[in-house]
């Protein structure tokens, strides 16, 4: 579903934010992408989603190169960023209709999905309100609802749990599992290691722009019989 091949990103021809990263994610998997602050997680996600172009390397989503066939590639995924900065001069329902029109979702389908997701995240009654009146968590829920509308093959989330209340956190995790059960794929970054530990089929660890591990939790634990937190701290320790 997602193939990242030898991708690097340099800023100002000097700092290497991502260094020769390769990763393959299969359909139906939930992958947790973890790493310390400044490790290159968000840069990698920005490159996957087409916000940034890689300096070298290639990223394919469902076989489509994000840089060569961006529209075809983008039809296969949706994205929830780490900070819910969206244009907030419109009402919640307008935002969701905007997203639905961008992904060409028929009216009957969009109505059913909008109602389902927004009721799940308890923002249905706020849909008539302007987004500018939403709290951080409500914006996050709106963004997640919008990203789920097209029923994407690949669901990409950057730190999705930040700002969500415990109920919504649980609901999001359930939705992610259900999405994969129905044939979808989830790729998300997080600092919440226990979430990654409990939810993911595989874990990818990035440190200083390099992918230092990518495997199932069991295999990673086989090498070091301890918690993911301990392993993560050990792997990302600065010499």
């Amino acid at each position: 579903m997602l193939v990242i091949s030898n991708v690097s990103k340099n800023y100002d021809n000097e700092k290497k934010a991502v260094d020769n990263l390769s990763l393959e994610i299969k359909q139906g998997e939930i992958i947790g992408f973890i790493g310390p602050n400044g490790a290159g997680k968000t840069t990698t996600i920005k490159m996957i989603t087409g916000i940034l172009a890689p300096t070298t390397g290639e990223i394919r989503i469902n076989g489509k190169d994000i840089n060569k066939e961006p529209v075809e590639a983008k039809r296969n995924f949706t994205f929830v960023p780490d900070h819910p900065t969206i244009f907030d001069g419109i009402r919640g329902i307008e935002y969701l209709n905007f997203i639905a029109d961008m992904y060409d979702i028929p009216e009957a389908v969009r109505q059913e999905r909008i109602e389902r997701f927004t009721k799940t995240f308890q923002i249905y009654t706020a849909l008539k309100d302007s987004i500018s009146s939403y709290s951080h968590g409500m914006r996050q829920k709106l963004l997640i609802s919008g990203a789920l509308l097209p029923n994407p093959k690949l669901f990409i989330l950057d730190e999705p749990m930040v700002g969500l209340d415990p109920q919504s956190n649980k609901m999001l995790k359930d939705i992610m599992k259900e999405h994969c059960k129905n044939g979808g794929t989830v790729f998300f970054s997080s600092h919440m290691l226990e979430v990654v530990e409990n939810l993911c089929d595989r874990v990818a660890i990035i440190h200083k722009g390099k992918l230092i591990a990518c495997d199932t939790l069991e295999k990673i634990k086989q090498k070091n019989d301890t918690s993911l937190e301990e392993i993560f701290l050990e792997m990302t320790k600065d010499e």
Binding site: D88, I90, N97, F98, D101, Q111, K128, D129
Partner: peptide
């Protein structure tokens, strides 16, 4: 602070161009 949203919930389909132009004009108006 919660606003008191007016209007109704709608699920009408519109073209990509219509939505994008509306968005840019609303950014100015807002």
């Amino acid at each position: 602070s919660r606003g008191f949203g007016k209007g109704r919930l709608y699920y009408k389909r519109q073209s990509v161009g219509h939505q994008l132009i509306k968005r840019h004009i609303k950014i100015i108006l807002h």
